[in-house]
Design a protein around this nucleic acid. Structure first.
Lengths: 246, 246
DNA sequence: TTTACGGTTTGATATTTGTCAATTGATCAG
DNA sequence: CTGATCAATTGACAAATATCAAACCGTAAA
């Protein structure tokens, strides 16, 4: 692991409050590795051996069933994934692959479980992290069940704008087919819906998003803190796609 | 609280391992109450004041947005709900209402937070519980995104049969409109789909389910441990509807 | 520059799903 | 027993969404 990387990990909400000695223990058995783009990191169903921490690059969490697959979340630096499987010592529910070249730290799950049993501060951090992950997935499920495709797209586009500081224009952080899958629709459907949304205050040209009528878009998206976040206290940052992992 | 109730709570995975003194502290500030059917217990967006423990009866967790609503989970005895909101001291993401007359214990969230900070065993239990809740919602989301309506229904009917011990016949534990909402479709859609499923090995007459051709139904449902559960270690029971709450 | 590749868009079409309205059926209070 | 109520079903229809195929386009390798 590189010298500047340790402080970055230590700065994460998950590792911030634990005793230094325990942090050192965790990191001694951990190792960092750089992976090329489009590489499979995890196959759903495999036993959970390592907590993953993304230092650079982007990782997609996706699920498969019966020959189909769908994107569940995207993890960006500095974020962790598959915490829950590690804790339960259970098989991964999701697969993971790199989208870009990515640098990732692998923390052995067994050490993780040992440390939160003897470091109360770390246990509390894990609790907060898990509660946050749980709430993120509940939000995602709410969006899928309560909103139509157009509404999900509108909400997503508006939320990205807000996360970027309320700007009227920005670029999409992911490919459209991935976005479509994340939002629970086909690429074709997304493409057509985006075109139709020009009448509702947002224009998308390539990966460039331009909000032409914020009021109109907001009216359609009806943003809701209980779906779109963030949690009021804001214990962890909102990634470009709500990083609903663990 | 009644004398026989305390041991039932204590027996829950969440409270089983904590120090007796801390359990006593929690229960001293808690109080039990009996509610009539169809009563709203929690409105989404309200601050999380109490962890709820269902002792008797049934509670529905549901979400609302823009005049629509959908069922997210059903909690049965003995189970807890909205743990995550309590921990984060954040607003509830879901509403809750009784389906039957229900007896519920209310544990102040502030005490909860105080206790898991000083009782490592309890902290570990909370971690396990949250990880389990997280995984349950991920499963639910996977089902929604990867399966069609018919497949979700088939999976549900098959899973219920398995949970009941592999029986060929059983009665639905909830009303069909609730089931429809839980599975992400309209009651009309569920009704028609159920009829069409007679050709796929299951017959539903009123609330009576009869599996007429298990192999056929299994072929359609393609049950998957990573969606339908349970987690291999089986730390907590599978309720009639996967009780994906916290 | 040119080609090759993969993402994206578009068109035509089929399927699924939702909506609205009416009817049936079961349950329960009076 | 009877009416009221609400869940469940059914039919007709509309809307949303998926599928399949082809064309388009931007990027990167040759």
């Amino acid at each position: 692991m590189r010298p500047h990387e340790l402080p970055e990990v230590r700065h994460l909400a998950l590792f911030r409050d634990m005793a230094q000695s325990n942090f050192d223990t965790l990191m001694q058995s951990a190792y960092a590795q750089t992976f090329p783009a489009s590489l499979d990191l995890i196959r759903q169903g495999d036993p959970a051996d390592f907590l993953h921490v993304v230092l650079e690059g982007t990782v997609e969490l996706y699920a498969q069933w019966g020959g189909r697959e769908c994107t569940m979340a995207v993890v960006r630096p500095v974020g962790t994934f598959i915490l829950a499987a590690c804790i339960r010592d259970a098989p991964y529910l999701m697969s993971a692959r790199t989208l870009d070249r990515a640098r990732i730290i692998l923390v052995p799950a067994s050490d993780l479980r040992a440390v939160f049993r003897r470091d109360p501060e770390f246990a509390v951090s894990v609790i907060h992290e898990l509660a946050g992950c749980y709430r993120a997935v509940v939000r995602h499920a709410k969006g899928l069940k309560l909103r139509t495709s157009r509404e999900r797209i509108a909400s997503y586009l508006l939320r990205q704008s807000v996360l970027a500081g309320g700007v009227a224009s920005y670029t999409l952080p992911v490919e459209k087919r991935l976005l479509a899958s994340y939002l629970g629709m086909t690429p074709e459907n997304l493409s057509r819906a985006l075109k139709s949304l020009e009448e509702d205050g947002v224009k998308v040209d390539g990966s460039r998003v331009i909000i032409t009528d914020r009021a109109r878009l907001t009216e359609l998206a009806r943003p809701d803190r209980l779906i779109d976040g963030p949690d009021p206290d804001g214990a962890h940052a909102g990634a470009s796609l709500p990083s609903a992992q663990g």
